[in-house]
Design a protein around this nucleic acid. Structure first.
Length: 824
DNA sequence: TAATTCGCTAGACCGA
DNA sequence: TCGGTCTAGCGAA
């Protein structure tokens, strides 16, 4: 029996058959109807560059290597002599095969006695995907054969795979989201003793409704409940549903760390039949420690943790979430509110029963739906990241940007016939972290109100510098080029003009593809599934492109080069400063600039501005390009807090464009660690000044706000300051207001987790700000220190703006008094 | 085992 | 009580 067809390769796991190493590949048929897995044999290996020039002799010795791995003998299975490039050199070296992926670490360590080892730490399935030329989560042609095993059963084997041209489509996964609620009066989840109370789930994408499995007898009017007789039955029911629905992708929120490990342990405690995976392999959940976190794999299905996706996207700046809770992420992505409940209320509501418990059922169902919606949002992006980085969706969902860039470079290295550089050891990492690389140039602005501003920025500045100057750890100061005839950097280093480095070459491809996609998208109808997937693809390429510079100077990078990094930023500073100088020469006033942007004052004649842009672009090398961001009729810059001079504050400005859209950066109003009252007042003042330029109106508004504060009318939610304790509460040197508030709350018995994002207000009780700080849940409506909010929040936020626009500070305060607003 | 540096600001802390 | 310095957090790019 042999069949050939087209299917999506959706997962790859290490596997064995008849003691032979290989991978278990999971495919989803192109029409979405069938999911199936098959085995393909694949031998793990590593490279050895022997010290001795006698390769044959080295090969003899290495083939006899053995080691003890977990009490058993591990032997080298075979050794080949191959040719690869390492750095600038072409070398002949040994490719050492082992019989199990688990033997590679030990055997490569033994092999170090004979020379330098490489690529011994490339994850096995990633190695397979690259060597086989496959792109995970995309369509492949696959030939499946069947053979009869020793036990007489028929087993599917992958005979051959062929990668098909990539198209941006999401594999037709059968999706299911889920969420659990647990009983934890102590505040700390304890799966060995405390039961899981309910499991909610939602099937499909988009999921229409959620169901809740429970063994509670309450809530008989709720039609979305599935009742079972006990906790064990609940677990078994859930596993049964996952199997019956033939789920490919099970999505949770923080389920790597919480839900799945919890269920796994409950199943063990209760001896439940919890076969949630595919195949007959026990519970089917494997929980592995991954640094400080855990990751949970389900055999034969993709476990997708939307929390991981949200936190990475937040980290790289693709999205900005206030908090990484499901509710907050859901609200930011969909603009909707989710039914909420406080954590301690869960077990209380459950124990109390009645209405509270009904609310809890609804809350749990809402969580499953919210999780499903978040997943719908981030999944296309993660799938495209997986394709670009050549990792499975499961892996990419747990990867940092650094690991994704590394995945991409690993594939490029193999294609170029190179051996990858090794990861640095502990001492090297430490040394690399010692002193910082000089970064960007930021021009000091002068405070004031300006008219006719044009803003330019260099398109993908660092990536375009890297590709246009061939910046790479292996092209730096090459012996084949004379510095005068190479790409020269202000640091004195030069980069080869004859051979392309792996970093610029790979980055170039990423940028080229993104450009092509954006071009294609311009001609398409927006909102179609195809358009959305293309958008996800271009976005994932953007994220990756922007991570290359970071990877070059990241201490754990395989392609680290301090000099290459320094050259990138030095060139960036040079380009922006030269462009600014040219602008001045051409009669413009340069207002401001930060890293890759330039703010010019012009006389209202846009053609002059465009002519300047054209001239600059003609002088730029490679793919470097100066883009016109927008024209702004008005803009405001302010002074620094403690500075009498005329110098302005960097990274702080407000602009209004010709259609009236306002762009604000750096001001207190964009910062969560300022109160709502200060932020809204500042926003309104800026809007008035940018739109109507009416200073009296702005001043009046401030006065009104102050009066309201003093009358005690402002609600607590507008007074809360949000911040995070980024260290453990015990390790602080200085007791800040937020720390004091957390300590007070804990002393009163309120649970506050480490590193939690918290909100606090400044009450009237106490002398210093710290003494007055109270966590939001402990504060009482009306009990706030009005003078603090006037003098330390509202006034500092607006004064600098008013002063920058010519208001005299003393005069302003006197006027305030005359209008009967009290003293400040 | 989360790419980087630059910059602003607060409130605490400390010594005179 | 003051003014300078330090610690810490968040945002721009």
């Amino acid at each position: 029996m042999e069949t050939k067809f087209r299917a999506y390769l959706i997962d790859a796991e290490p596997a064995f058959r008849n003691r032979e190493a290989g991978v278990r590949l999971t495919f989803k048929a192109e029409d979405g109807k069938r999911t199936f897995a098959a085995f393909k044999a694949f031998k793990p290996y590593f490279y050895l560059i022997p010290e001795s020039t006698d390769l044959e002799a080295a090969r003899e010795k290495v083939s006899k290597l053995s080691a003890i791995v977990r009490g058993r003998e591990a032997k080298v299975s075979s050794v080949e002599i191959v040719e690869r490039k390492a750095g600038r050199e072409a070398v002949r070296l040994l490719k050492v095969f082992c019989s199990s992926p688990g033997h590679v670490p030990k055997l490569s360590e033994e092999a170090r006695a004979f020379g330098k080892t490489h690529e011994y730490d490339i994850p096995f399935t990633r190695r397979f995907v690259i060597d086989e030329g496959l792109v995970p989560e995309s369509l492949v042609e696959v030939e499946i054969g069947a053979e009869v095993g020793k036990d007489g059963k028929l087993r599917k084997t992958v005979k051959r795979t062929r990668q098909l041209p990539q198209s941006p489509t999401l594999p037709p996964f059968k999706m299911m989201s889920f969420d659990i609620e647990t009983h934890n009066p102590s505040g700390i989840p304890n799966p060995s003793r405390e039961p899981a109370l309910m499991i909610s789930y939602a099937v499909g994408s988009p999921a229409k409704d959620a169901k809740v499995i429970t063994y509670s007898k309450a809530g008989d009017k709720l039609d979305f409940l599935t009742r079972v007789s006990g906790e064990r039955e609940m677990l078994e029911k859930f596993a049964e549903i996952v199997r019956a629905e033939r789920v490919d992708l099970l999505c949770g929120y923080n389920s790597d760390e919480f839900d799945l490990p919890y269920l796994k342990e409950r199943a063990a405690v209760l001896k439940a039949d919890f076969r949630i995976g595919r195949g007959n392999r026990g519970a089917g959940i494997q929980v592995k420690k991954l640094g400080a976190r855990r990751r949970s794999r389900i055999n034969g299905r993709i476990h997708f943790d939307a929390f991981n996706a949200a936190s990475i996207l937040n980290y790289v700046g693709a999205f900005k979430f206030n908090r990484l809770t499901l509710g907050s992420v859901f609200a930011t992505l969909t603009g909707e509110e989710k039914l909420d409940t406080k954590k301690p209320d869960i077990w209380r509501a459950y124990d109390a029963g009645g209405k509270g418990l009904e609310h809890l059922f609804k809350y749990s169902a809402a969580d499953a739906i919210a999780c499903s919606r978040v997943c719908d949002f981030v999944l296309p992006l993660q799938a495209e990241l997986a394709k670009v980085a050549r990792m499975t969706l499961f892996d990419v969902n747990r990867s940092t940007p650094g690991q994704m860039v590394e995945g991409l470079l690993a594939a490029a290295s193999s294609q170029r016939g190179e051996v990858m550089p090794n990861k640095p050891g502990y001492a090297t990492v430490q040394a690399r972290q010692d002193d910082a690389i000089q970064g960007a140039f930021v021009k000091v602005p002068s405070p004031g109100l300006y008219e006719n501003i044009a803003v330019f920025d260099f398109k993908s500045l660092y990536p375009s510098i890297i590709t246009s100057h061939n910046i790479d750890p292996a092209t730096i100061n090459c012996p084949c080029c004379h510095p005068d005839d190479a790409h020269l950097s202000p640091t004195g280093n030069w980069f080869c003009k004859k051979r392309r480095g792996i970093v610029p070459e790979t980055l170039d491809k990423v940028l080229d593809e993104r450009f092509e996609i954006k071009e294609k998208m311009r001609k398409m109808k927006k909102g179609t599934p195809e358009y959305r997937q293309l958008d996800a693809r271009q976005f994932s390429l953007k994220i990756l492109a922007n991570s290359f510079y970071g990877y070059l100077v990241y201490a754990r990078s395989r392609y680290y080069s301090r000099e290459a990094g320094e050259s990138t930023t030095a060139l960036a500073r040079e380009y922006i400063q030269k462009t600014m100088a040219q602008a001045e020469k051409d009669g413009f006033t340069v207002l401001y600039g930060d890293t890759d942007s330039i703010f010019l004052l012009h006389d209202g004649d846009k053609s002059g501005v465009l002519a300047f842009q054209k001239k600059i672009n003609e002088s730029l090398p490679g793919r470097m390009e100066l883009e016109l961001e927008d024209f702004y009729p008005r803009g405001i810059f302010v002074g620094k807090k403690h500075q009498k001079e005329e110098k302005g504050a960097k990274k702080k400005y407000a602009l209004i464009n010709e259609s009236g859209a306002i762009k604000i950066r750096g001001f207190e109003l964009v910062r969560r660690d300022w109160s709502g009252v200060a932020r809204t007042t500042q926003r309104k003042v800026l809007e008035i000044l940018l739109k109507d330029g009416d200073m009296d109106k702005a001043v009046k508004l401030v006065g009104e706000m102050i009066a309201q504060l003093r009358e005690g009318k402002v609600p607590l939610k507008d007074l809360a300051v949000t911040t995070q304790l980024r260290k453990s509460a015990g390790s602080y040197k200085v007791i800040s207001p937020e720390l004091a508030a957390v300590r007070r709350a804990r002393a009163a018995g309120v649970k506050v987790g480490e590193h939690e994002v918290i909100e606090y207000i400044i009450s009237r009780q106490g002398k210093t700000v710290s003494e007055k700080a109270l966590l939001f849940p402990m504060a009482k409506e009306g009990d706030y220190d009005a003078e603090y909010y006037v003098n330390n929040q509202v006034l500092p936020a607006v004064l600098k703006i008013l002063v920058a626009l010519g208001v005299d500070e003393e005069d302003f305060k006197t006027k305030g008094k005359q209008k009967g607003l009290g003293e400040w």
